[in-house]
């Protein structure tokens, strides 16, 4: 299952929308929190996360572009859960002349969460400590970010960005808390790595 997801999210876009010699890599660290989206920005305590991803342009104009991302992430929310997930986003970017860029991204993906403490499972009339197999979650997201292209004049300029991501964890706790809302505040960078090309390319 996971292999299929990885193929769909990472490999398929590469085949369909391959962009020549340089592949963009997005890397960010983020602070995850349970919160009502757009009511909080910086939250404490810090629940750290790391995200790696790439992106592929559908349409690219002088000041704007429509693109798709593919991301892999992990976060650790102390005392609540740790999650690992794969998701993709449809993004729109508008870039000003001097390199400042604004993005809006709508995403969907899969997340698997695990407990951060020993979990006891009820079985045969009593509780026993068992290996946590985790919980499957749908992961829709809506993000806005502000970035800055360091070498705007270059096609493959590196970028630094701050991203405010709101997302939903569903299902959460059936008949108790149907969905859980989260926010993640990312600080990250985009850079390009060169792809090894065949001689006849």
């Amino acid at each position: 299952m996971n292999r299929i997801l990885i193929y769909l999210i990472f490999i398929t876009p590469t085949v369909l929308f391959g962009q020549g010699k340089a592949i963009p890599i997005n890397i960010s660290i983020f602070n995850e929190s349970t919160a009502i989206p757009f009511t909080r920005f910086v939250t404490t305590p810090i629940h750290p996360g790391l995200q790696l991803g790439t992106e592929f342009n559908y349409i690219s104009k002088v000041h704007s572009r429509l693109f798709q991302t593919a991301n892999l992430y992990y976060f650790y929310h102390n005392h609540l859960a740790q999650g690992i997930g794969l998701y993709t986003e449809l993004g729109y970017e508008y870039c000003l002349k001097f390199g400042l860029a604004f993005q809006a991204l709508l995403g969907v993906g899969y997340m698997h969460t695990f407990a951060t403490a020993d979990e006891f499972t009820f079985s045969n009339g009593h509780y026993e400590k068992k290996t946590d197999k985790g919980n499957a979650r749908l992961f829709p997201s809506l993000s806005f970010d502000i970035g800055y292209y360091i070498k705007k004049s270059e096609k493959n300029s590196p970028e630094i960005f701050v991203r405010y991501q709101s997302w939903i964890e569903y299902p959460y706790s059936p008949d108790f808390i149907p969905v859980m809302t989260h926010i993640s505040l990312h600080i990250g960078a985009k850079f390009f790595i060169n792809k090894k090309m065949n001689n006849n390319e």
């Binding site: 020993d118 979990e119 009820f122 509780y127 059936p174 008949d175």
Partner: peptide
């Protein structure tokens, strides 16, 4: 029982 599945954490 945070996730309504009788899997409890302290």
């Amino acid at each position: 029982d945070m996730y309504s599945n009788l899997q409890v954490v302290e």
